[in-house]
Amino acid sequence: MIVTLGFAIAAAGASAYAAHLRRRLRTDQLTGLGNRLALHEAVARCRRRRVAVLLLDLDGFKPINDTFGHRCGDAVLVEVARRLRAHQRCGRLAVRLSGDEFAFWISDATDDREVERLRRDIARSIATPMTVEGQVLRVSASIGAAVTDGRPARLDALLETADKAMYRDKARRSAHHRLPVPDARRSVRRREVVA
C-alpha cells in the first residue's frame, strides 16, 4: 500500500514536471509570452478557414537599447508583452518571435475590419509612453497583417505576407514623421551618476 502510494506520488510529480517542461518549451523566457513553437502549435490546432496573423516590429527600440542598456531594453520588451497580452482572448495568441519582433495570431478572422481594428488598437497601445527605470520612453510598432483567403493556413506564407505588409507600414510611417530618439547626453550623465 505504501509502495503503491509512493509510486503514485512519484508519477504525479513526474507528470507535473513534464507539463512544466512543455510550458517552458513554448514560452519566451523574458516576456512570458508564447514563442515560435507555441505559434506553430496554435496554427496546427486551428481548423478554421479564415485566420490572420499580425507581425510587429518595434520602431525606436534600438536607440533605447543602445542608449539606456540591455536591462532597460528588456524592461521595454516586457512592457510591450504586457500590452499585447491585454488583447488576447480565446483564439488569439501573442508571441515573441525574436528580439523586438512579435506576432499576434487570430484564429477567428471572419471580419477583415475587425482585424484592422485590432491592428490599430495594438499600435495605439504600444505607442503609449512607458516609464522604465525612471525614464519616460516611447516605442511604436510597425504592424503588417495577413489574412487567409479561405484555404487552410500555412504559417510560413502568412508570416511572409505579413512581413511585406509590415515593411510597407514602416515605410509609410517613417515618411510621415521621424521617431524621437532618447537624448544620449542625458543618458551618459545618468550612467555616470549610477556608476
Rank of each mutant, 00 (worst) to 15 (best):
R168H: 15
R24H: 00
D163I: 13
L56I: 03
S174H: 11
L33A: 01
A12Q: 06
D59T: 09
R45S: 08
R191K: 11
A86N: 05
Y17C: 14
T110G: 13
S174E: 07
E79H: 03
A165Y: 14
R190A: 11
S125C: 03
V95A: 00
L30D: 01
L118P: 10
L155A: 07
A103E: 07
G6N: 15
S187W: 10
G60C: 08
L30W: 06
H87L: 06
E101L: 09
R92W: 00
P152S: 13
S187N: 10
F104A: 00
L158Y: 02
G134S: 15
A86S: 10
L21I: 04
S107M: 12
R45C: 07
G144Q: 11
G32L: 09
R186S: 09
H20V: 06
E41C: 06
R191L: 12
D183M: 02
D100H: 12
R154A: 10
L21V: 00
R124F: 06
T31Y: 01
D112L: 14
G32M: 04
E192C: 12
K62P: 06
R47T: 12
R23E: 07
T131A: 13
E192W: 15
V78P: 04
D57S: 09
V188D: 05
A175C: 07
V78D: 03
D183F: 00
D183V: 01
S15R: 11
F7R: 15
G99C: 04
R190Q: 10
T4I: 09
R96M: 04
D183P: 00
A75P: 13
A123Y: 05
A109I: 04
L55Q: 13
A10G: 14
A38Q: 07
G6R: 10
R191A: 11
L84Y: 08
V188C: 10
A103Q: 08
L5H: 11
A165D: 14
L93C: 06
A52M: 04
R48S: 12
I9N: 09
